[in-house]
Design a protein around this nucleic acid. Structure first.
Lengths: 217, 217
DNA sequence: CTCTCCCTACGTGAAACACGTAATTCCTTT
DNA sequence: AAAGGAATTACGTGTTTCACGTAGGGAGAG
């Protein structure tokens, strides 16, 4: 038996969703709610396993509500349903703590599957949302890669070694001791690196190291 | 009509796949290949729209092959099929340029869909792969968020301002001039920031700025 | 054999850092 | 109203790092 709370500012939709969910014997609709003001109050009494939040328009304010609900009800898993197609917003709701997101194309079947999925501890994203997230991720991945290994290959192994140490907490003095060379040599290496990469300051050097995965962030 | 090349080191699987694909009148199997050595040669003659690469075991070497194929045949879209479940490897094949990835659970129906999908210019990932990528992405998202805004909020607006300038290419001298304050004051601000955040060196300060989105990488 | 790149190292002046001190202002708490 | 605290401003002093030039020895390429 899964305890469900339903929020939807359109009363008709709210009742419709409620009816649909009640058709499934394993679903127990604890409450329905059609205004934001009362939602936090309605969450208090019982253990709500899944909260179905229908957000016709998601704004930053909505995101804050999700954050707050998550804090106040750590055991409740939030499933967001919305027609929005703004990546920005969707990402924010996920960051805020939503465990699932149903896009506009989702059917009743999807809703049921989503409820089971997030109840069992996994995340659920409908097809369009998945596509959206994935596209973005893939794009990130490839961008990461393009900026990687291009310039790094122009550095010698020694230069990379010095940069690694320096970028991960060691002072020039410490590097010199570790590698049994003069501190002046360490400085020279860094100078050569900066010249080779045409960097103007050490801040850019750190950025370079991070982009190329030799400095841990 | 879609021109397809098939690579599979198991000859039986290769033939089976070929037969299956030939059932679809729109698929034109240009060649089959069962050894790595000959693959690049077989790609040369015609325009291969989709290359189906079955990799029973994907290694770094396999990834390099993909990279090379992509360079030599920029118009060919590569669809990888593999039983591996190593995130590392899957990510690398995607970075290397593969346009699709079919996991172990994929059916013939999925294969056909995948071929149409990547032929039309989109990426295709089977359910298990999608799940894998998404989990990782969501995890990244949340991690990003956890490390954000937590510590940054402890800094004053002025401190953030100085950090922003410094992290984006300005020297202390330049910042001082821009803000009409002494260079010593700029130094003071940075000192206070480092103390407040308990950072040991400027490298860490850069990392902090990047994590908190006030320094562009 | 020459040329280039890499690793090593130093000199010097400028810039940045570490750490302490301190005055003024503004805000909160008592 | 008074006290406390944080923020912004600033300086002193000693250390470290940076920027730029110079330079010798070694390894590899042409």
């Amino acid at each position: 038996m899964i305890n469900i709370g339903i929020f939807n500012e359109h009363r008709l939709s709210l009742e419709g969703t409620c009816r649909l969910l009640l058709e499934n014997k394993e679903f127990n609709v604890l409450f329905t709610c059609d205004e934001r003001a009362g939602l936090r109050e309605k969450m208090k009494p019982g253990p709500v396993h899944v909260l179905l939040l229908t957000m016709h328009e998601i704004s930053i304010n909505s995101v804050n509500i999700i954050v707050q609900l998550c804090i106040e009800n750590p055991k409740t898993r939030i499933l967001v349903m919305s027609l929005t197609d703004s990546e920005e917003i969707i990402l924010k709701t996920i960051k805020a703590g939503a465990k699932g997101f149903l896009g506009p194309e989702s059917s009743y079947r999807d809703l049921v599957e989503a409820i089971y999925t997030i109840r069992s501890g996994h995340d659920y994203f409908s097809k369009s949302i998945t596509q959206l997230l994935l596209n973005r991720y893939i794009k990130n991945l490839k961008e990461d890669d393009n900026s990687t290994e291009n310039d790094l290959s122009s550095l010698s192994a020694r230069q990379v070694e010095i940069l690694k140490f320096w970028g991960n907490g060691f002072s020039n003095q410490e590097i010199a001791e570790k590698l049994f060379i003069s501190i002046r040599t360490v400085e020279s290496h860094k100078n050569h690196i900066m010249q080779k990469l045409n960097l103007k300051n050490t801040v850019d050097l750190v950025k370079f190291g991070i982009k190329n995965n030799i400095i841990e962030i």
